[in-house]
Every structure is written in C-alpha cells, then in structure tokens.
C-alpha cells in the first residue's frame, strides 16, 4: 500500500468536497486524513488529502482534475519517494 498526500486547489463551490471524496473512494483510494480551508478573499479552497492505495496516484490525479471546479492537484510527497509531480487543471 502506497501513501500519498495530495494538495488540491479548487473553487469554493457546492459539494466540491463531496465530489473529491466520491471520486477518491470510487477510484480505489483509502482516505486517511483531510484538511480543508477556504480563502474567503478569493473563494479558493485548499484541500490536503492523505490517501493510500495499491494503484498509481496518477490515476486519481487525472480523475480529480476532471472535476469541473478543480484548479490544480499536486502530490506533496510520495511514499516511494519518486518526487513531487505537478498536474494543472
């Protein structure tokens, strides 16, 4: 099981957190922890999502990036230490 921390930047829109959690579960990732904050100035939320799975993290990043409200997804660290990757939406 590999552990990952994702940093997700998103517009602060209806049920965006539910959408992210639904996609994460459906695509085969366990959610180990979550921090979420909204910048009330620009209405952009930052979500730190701690997940684990046997599946490559890129599969989840691509699916989260497809959500309409997502601005970007970044892997902050990776258990197998291949380094951070940036995927822009």
């Amino acid at each position: 099981m590999n552990n990952y921390k994702l940093i997700i930047m998103t517009d602060d829109r209806q049920v965006v957190l539910e959408r992210i959690l639904q996609v994460t579960r459906y695509r085969g990732f366990l959610i180990n922890g979550i921090n979420a904050q909204v910048n009330t100035g620009n209405q952009i939320a930052t979500i730190e999502l701690y997940v684990s799975s046997e599946r490559p993290i890129e599969l989840l990043i691509d699916q989260i990036n497809k959500l309409i409200d997502i601005k970007g997804v970044k892997v902050d660290n990776k258990a197998d230490n291949k380094g951070a990757q940036q995927h822009s939406a």
């Binding site: 049920v15 539910e18 959408r19 459906y26």
Partner: peptide, 14 residues
C-alpha cells in the same frame, strides 16, 4: 438528487 447525481453525472448544480 444533487447528492445522488455525483456518481452518475459529469457535473451537477442545485
């Protein structure tokens, strides 16, 4: 239905 729609739509609004 907004909640139910999350898994079966590309996007949804209420």
């Amino acid at each position: 239905i907004f909640g139910l729609s999350l898994a079966c739509t590309k996007h949804s609004f209420q």
